[in-house]
Design a protein around this nucleic acid. Structure first.
Length: 126
RNA sequence: CAAGCAAAUCCCUCUAUCGCCUCCUGAAAUAUGGAGGAGGAAAGUCCGGGCAACAUAGAGCAUCCUGCUUCCUAACGGGAAGACGCAUGGUAACAUGUGAUAGAAAGUGCCACAGAAAAUAAACCGCCAGUAGCAAUACCGGUAAGGGUGAAAACGUGAGGUAAGAGCUCACGGCUUUGCAUAGGAAUAUGCAUCGCGGUAAACCUCAGGAGUUGAAAGACCAAAUAGGUCCCGAACAUGAAGCUGCUCGUUUCAUCACUUCGGUGUAUUCGGGAUGGGUAGGUUGAUGGAGGACGGAAGCAAUUCCGCCCCUAGAUAAAUGAUAGAUAAGGUUGCUAUUCUUAGCAACUGAUACAGAACCCGGCUUAUGGAUUUGCAUUUUUU
RNA sequence: UGUCCGAUAGUGUAACUGGCAACACGUCUGGUUUUGGUCCAGAAGAGUCUAGGUUCGAGCCCUAGUCGGACAA
């Protein structure tokens, strides 16, 4: 049985690395997400990600937290089924930044579908 | 029974699967097992304090804040009780609501337009005396009663007084200063005497009280790689002239730096190695047991305080507390039945919901909010 | 987390010490021109972010809120 973990090691926590990702990484949009990615040399896990919801679009902290939790839940399933096998096959390590650019809260089911499509497109690009 | 007002309390449930954070167990781990994991406002950041660093003889000035009294409190611009004013209701007693409520009798300023005049004063109409004139009237002086203007007109009413008038004098009344007496702990109230009479201090200001500055991104500790600093050890030596040599390299002597006991030593430069201080990334701490809460008793009108006993209740750090499925409680909608026409029962569907997410911690204030329960208040209807 | 500013016609800005909310551009109407532009003449368009208070009177003073912005690493 597969384990759908999502631990602290799989998050990108360093401010400097995030700034580097913003300045050097390449990006594309796939509604309702905008994904910034760049490959790095060594990591203990295949990918480290940041989830971001802009304060300008969602004023209340409750809404931002809910969207981040939805995305995190969707990513937890998507990376185990989709992302990690492909990355291990290509021997790549990634830094990822997922920004939610939609204007309203949508259901968890549709976020899961959209995120799967977005990650497939990411795998085709690299 | 119903709706209303006020106060207090409670609310993200349970089961399954997957997952996150902290702690415990464990030799150890991201394993296994166990325990725990958002609020009344966590919000706004409007006040006050703890805590920390720095500064600091004392006093004054400046700046800012507060402003009826007493009490509560660690403290407050918060709260409690009271005083006074205003508004509404009431014949009144009083009730409810509300108030930045010290000082306008220290001084300065301002009061548009209108109006004669907006504050040491001032005369447009009017009233009165005098002079001139037959008279109308003119000149000069007195006068704040009356008119009109304005948000506000020199305290109001009456009498005396006067040529006409005027707090000019008196009586009553309103506000007010000071003193005394009584009541009260005080604000204040009542009485007597006395002084005074436009408003504005959310105008400057005066008086009284208070404020050191900066905030956890404070502060403390550990500390990789790289570069550079300091120290130690080891190795090497630049330039010129002459000699050795056919020439280069090399070597010797002398000079170019200092000291010298003439053997050398030191300084400077380069390379290698080691040690060490500061300190970056990063990490630990600060940082969650406290002005803590529940219950009982005592003091107090109350805010609150004291005593006893019990309880431990988030601790993340680019930031956890979630997702999916199902279940019901209160509630909601629809239908059916009974009925005093408003309730009750049954069935189906819906349904864990409003406002909203801890970021060092407390005490308040303000703002946003759907429901449930309890208590109190007065009102209406029905029955007895 | 903390500190500090601002909000006025469609747009950009004024309004001193509280006393009729002003200017420019834009808009509309008319004229000039064959037409458009330029130019000339005229008009409309706000009650000052919201609520409450002080005052005879508030854009201005005070309190609370809403929105926008700046600064401190």
């Amino acid at each position: 049985m597969k384990k759908y973990y999502f631990r602290k090691e799989e998050r990108l926590c360093s401010i400097k690395q995030i700034e580097q990702l913003y300045s050097l990484g390449s990006s594309f949009s796939f509604y309702p997400f905008r994904i910034i990615h760049s490959s790095v040399s060594t990591l203990t896990v295949p990918a480290q990600i940041v989830i971001s919801v802009p304060k300008r679009k969602f004023k209340r902290a409750v809404d931002r937290n809910r969207i981040k939790r939805q995305i995190r839940e969707a990513y937890r399933f998507a990376k185990t089924d989709l992302l990690y096998p492909a990355l291990i096959e290509k021997t790549l390590h990634l830094h990822l930044l997922i920004i939610y650019t939609g204007n309203e809260i949508i259901t968890t089911e549709s976020i899961r579908k959209k995120l799967n499509l977005a990650l497939e497109r990411l795998l085709n690009k690299i």
